[in-house]
Amino acid sequence: MRPFDYLRPKSAEEAIEMKARLGKKASFLAGGTDLLVKLKEDAVRPEALIDLSFIESLKEIREADGTVAIGSLASYADIGSSPLIERFGYILRQGALEIGAPQIQNAATIGGNIANASPAADGIPPIYALGAHITLVGKEGRRVVAVEDFFTGPGKTVLKEDELIIEIGFPKMMEQDKGFFKKIGQRKALAISKASVAAVLHIANGKIEEARVALGAVAPTVIRCPKTETLLKGRKISGSLIEEAAKSVSSESMAIGDVRSTPEYRDYVIGVLFERGMRNIFSDILP
């Protein structure tokens, strides 16, 4: 590891000001669970770290007219134990509890997970499925970006050099909404996803009115499944619909092979995950 300066801003404004001043030379530090690994491997060489972890205001999870807003510094342990998330965004809770292991969840933040922009990040498919927006603040002001527009490639986002992720907001899941997050890794804990899937379905009159399905680890970024979503729209839940949709999910997966798995397996198993998730949430109406 190389030496670096360590800065500790007390507010978001101060953090942004520091970053604007130092530019590329500085990195924000949240839980450090991605950044420290990269520092150790010499994959990044910042001259200064701006430690966000003392900015309490960025750790809040709150609700405001129909939406839930999660401060970017909220840890996955915070998210996993938040009653608001459990009630209005439980698929994110499911994701939070599958990140690494408890020690990692205590340190890892949602902002860091998003900024790191791994296609295998377990916090990202749930916020796609929830239809989230990400609030960014930089020297030039505040902007709100739809989650789909935020990621541009593996490790790549639209975040500008001086911008800080402030919060992640999403419309509350209502009683008619059902959803799930499922992942598969190389072992039961401390496992990066080989494939993951999140879905939110809005149900009215026994039919799927709207569906949002997001896949992780099978494309350069987390992706939505437009064909599957269209296929589900307006349909009544049935075993055969789920099977058909699972096949469609597999066909929309665009996995590559690496040390963790093969493209064939990923494309295949993501359909299995989807099918299992659907069968779980509709177990009351399915035979």
Binding site: V37, A101, Q186, R187, K188, A189, L190, A191, V259
Partner: peptide, 27 residues
């Protein structure tokens, strides 16, 4: 089930514990 020091053209592809997978307590 898990452990595999994968090699390709003499290079180790699994050179840390994120990719070289050993069982955890829950496994």
């Amino acid at each position: 089930l898990y452990e595999d020091l994968k090699m390709e053209k003499g290079q180790v592809l699994t050179s840390n514990f994120t990719t070289y997978i050993i069982p955890t307590a829950v496994d």
